[in-house]
Write a protein that binds this DNA or RNA. Structure first.
Length: 426
DNA sequence: TTTGGCTGCCC
DNA sequence: ATTCTGC
DNA sequence: GCAGAATGGGCAGCCAAA
């Protein structure tokens, strides 16, 4: 598929704020692929629709090239100095639009024809596959001279793109695609185009949350059908999408959930999803980056004190003064987020992992089990140590209990408290 | 070798 | 992370 | 209430220029 086709889709999506209309644009686009039975690039198309090169679980480097360097590239390409480009950027409000504006002017001067028309006639638009491999090159370029190399590749791409294509190309590179569409809407489009029924949305959503690679899910859907998508499940080594909590004044917990419900401390640290396969420990950040190397101490304490050969669980790692049993604020912990001198900083900023959920144990998925069941199993398999504990969790029966739990939580240096329903299906 | 702009990722 | 918008 | 976008503080790493 050509990139101009995808660019047109971006443009259509951007033209509306109505979600149903966006879904319609997406499903029409997918149905077109279906008619042509051309699924070669479907995964890449999906990633680009998400404004990415690869799914988060792929641990692929980022472009390392954002607004300031794009300005440099536009300047090199157009001959307009970067100060002037910055002025245009302020007016246009967007680096993509800025480039589109500048290039459409320039190209009109150069040629008597409208560039987009020339391109349509000659069919010379960039192949998505080529665009994709060039973008990968940009991401993989590093070391001395890498800025120039990246800019060189980018200039090559821009010279093959129409102004409209350049707009979206640059937005993809700077992770600011913002055409009003993300995973949820893409899933709706896919559902409509490939299953015909909107009710099937949940199946794809579930698969995506357990194996967050929408390109791969799409491929399964178009090549093997919804039946196979249903079979997607949580696997060791593949981090699942983390559940997000919504903010709420704690006194409202009782109104929303009734009593009793479970309350837990909300800790001021970094969220970790832990996959243990034998002695092998992998830690994933909330954005699904493998950050195991940052916490060798955490890996060690898990290896030695979690009594399960294979298990996936979640926790919050918090900087801790073990002598005074005092939790330290997030800023202290953030010193741990580094690549070098990891052992030194581990000693300087000791941490504790507070475990709060179980996702898989052995070959059994726990994602649909009840809260109490998950907690009970966690208590069974974790030997608590100074550096490894279960998060404080209590059953709240009354407003008085809630108030006192909140006050204790704050006194002990927590951010606040979390509320969890005891209903089986949540 | 040092400095500072830029980028990306946590919250 | 929070806050805002359109649906 | 949901999905997506816009925005902010603070840290470390990378790289080019000083």
């Amino acid at each position: 598929m050509k990139f101009n086709k995808l660019s047109q889709l971006f443009s259509d999506l951007e033209s509306t704020t109505k979600r149903l209309e966006m879904i319609d644009f997406l499903s029409k686009f997918f149905e077109d692929l279906k008619e042509k039975e051309d699924y070669r690039d479907i995964d890449k198309i999906i990633y680009l629709l998400q404004g990415q090169l690869t799914p988060n679980i792929k641990q692929f480097p980022k472009m390392g090239l954002a607004e300031k360097m794009i300005i440099e590239a536009i300047s090199l390409h157009s001959g307009i100095n970067s100060k002037r480009i910055k002025e245009i950027l302020i007016k246009q409000g967007d680096i993509g639009a800025t480039a589109e504006f500048i290039l459409s002017k320039k190209k009109k001067q150069k040629s008597l024809f409208d560039y987009n028309k020339v391109e349509e006639i000659s069919g010379s638009s960039l192949e998505i596959l080529e665009l994709y491999s060039e973008l990968k090159k940009i991401a993989l370029t590093e070391g001395i001279g890498s800025h120039d190399t990246k800019l060189g590749i980018l200039r090559g791409l821009i010279s093959k793109c129409s102004p409209l294509e350049t707009k979206y190309l640059l937005r993809i590179i700077t992770s600011t695609l913002r055409v009003g569409v993300q995973s949820q809407t893409i899933i709706e489009g896919l559902t409509l185009a490939f299953t015909g029924k909107r009710d099937n949305k949940g199946v794809i959503e579930r698969a995506y949350s357990l194996s967050p690679d929408l390109g791969e899910i799409s491929r399964i859907l178009v090549e093997k059908g919804l039946v196979e998508v249903k079979k997607v499940d949580i696997e060791y080594g593949t981090p699942i999408l983390s559940m997000l909590a919504s903010r709420e004044i704690y006194t409202e917990f009782t109104n929303r959930l009734g009593v009793p419900f479970v309350a837990e401390y909300k800790l001021d640290g970094e969220r970790l999803q832990i996959h243990k396969v034998g002695e092998n420990i992998t830690l994933f950040s909330r954005r699904l980056l493998d950050i195991s190397f940052q916490y060798p101490d955490v890996c060690k304490v898990i290896r030695e004190n979690v009594k399960a050969n294979k298990v996936i669980f979640e926790g919050e790692v918090v900087a801790m003064d073990h002598f005074y049993e005092k939790m330290l604020p997030f800023q202290v912990l953030s010193k741990r987020r580094r690549k070098f001198d990891v052992e030194d900083i581990s000693k300087e900023v000791p941490v504790c992992l507070f475990v709060f959920d179980l996702l898989k144990f052995g070959e059994e998925s726990f994602v649909d089990k009840s809260l109490s069941f998950r907690r009970k199993k966690l208590e069974e398999i974790i030997d608590e140590k100074d550096e490894l504990r279960l998060v404080k969790s209590v059953l709240i029966n009354s407003t008085e209990e809630l108030l006192s739990f909140f006050n204790t939580a704050r006194k002990e240096g927590n951010e606040g408290i979390m509320a969890k329903s005891i209903q089986e299906n949540s």
